[in-house]
Amino acid sequence: MKKNPEFRIKHYGFNELPEPARRSLLLRFTDQLTHFMALLLWVAGTLAFISGTPELGWAIWAVIWINAGFSFSQEFQAEQALAALNKMLPVRAKVYRDGTLSEIPVREMSCNWKRAIASLPMPEWFQINLCMSMSQC
Rank of each mutant, 00 (worst) to 15 (best):
1 M>K: 06
2 K>E: 08
3 K>G: 11
3 K>R: 03
4 N>T: 07
5 P>E: 07
5 P>A: 06
7 F>M: 00
7 F>E: 11
10 K>N: 15
12 Y>S: 01
13 G>W: 02
15 N>W: 06
16 E>P: 05
17 L>S: 04
22 R>C: 09
22 R>H: 08
23 R>H: 13
23 R>V: 03
23 R>G: 12
24 S>G: 13
24 S>Y: 03
27 L>P: 14
27 L>W: 11
28 R>W: 07
29 F>Q: 09
30 T>D: 07
30 T>I: 08
31 D>K: 04
34 T>D: 10
37 M>Q: 07
38 A>K: 04
38 A>G: 01
42 W>V: 00
42 W>D: 02
43 V>C: 08
44 A>L: 04
45 G>A: 09
46 T>F: 06
50 I>M: 02
51 S>E: 05
51 S>H: 03
51 S>G: 09
51 S>K: 06
51 S>R: 08
51 S>N: 08
52 G>S: 00
52 G>I: 01
52 G>H: 07
53 T>A: 13
54 P>R: 00
55 E>C: 00
55 E>A: 07
56 L>G: 07
57 G>V: 10
58 W>C: 09
58 W>E: 12
59 A>C: 08
60 I>M: 05
61 W>F: 13
61 W>H: 04
66 I>T: 07
67 N>V: 03
67 N>T: 04
68 A>P: 05
69 G>V: 12
70 F>Q: 06
70 F>W: 03
71 S>L: 10
71 S>P: 11
72 F>A: 00
73 S>F: 08
73 S>D: 13
73 S>E: 04
75 E>N: 10
75 E>S: 09
77 Q>G: 10
78 A>H: 13
79 E>F: 10
80 Q>K: 07
83 A>W: 14
84 A>L: 05
84 A>G: 06
85 L>H: 13
87 K>M: 01
90 P>H: 02
91 V>N: 15
92 R>E: 13
93 A>L: 14
94 K>M: 15
95 V>P: 04
98 D>T: 14
99 G>I: 01
103 E>H: 01
103 E>V: 07
104 I>Y: 02
105 P>D: 00
105 P>K: 00
107 R>V: 11
110 S>M: 10
110 S>L: 05
112 N>M: 03
112 N>R: 00
113 W>L: 01
114 K>V: 07
119 S>L: 15
119 S>R: 11
120 L>A: 02
120 L>K: 02
122 M>Y: 13
122 M>F: 08
122 M>E: 14
123 P>W: 14
124 E>G: 04
124 E>Y: 11
125 W>E: 14
126 F>R: 04
127 Q>T: 06
127 Q>C: 05
127 Q>R: 08
130 L>I: 02
130 L>K: 01
132 M>G: 11
134 M>F: 06
135 S>M: 09
136 Q>D: 08
136 Q>V: 07
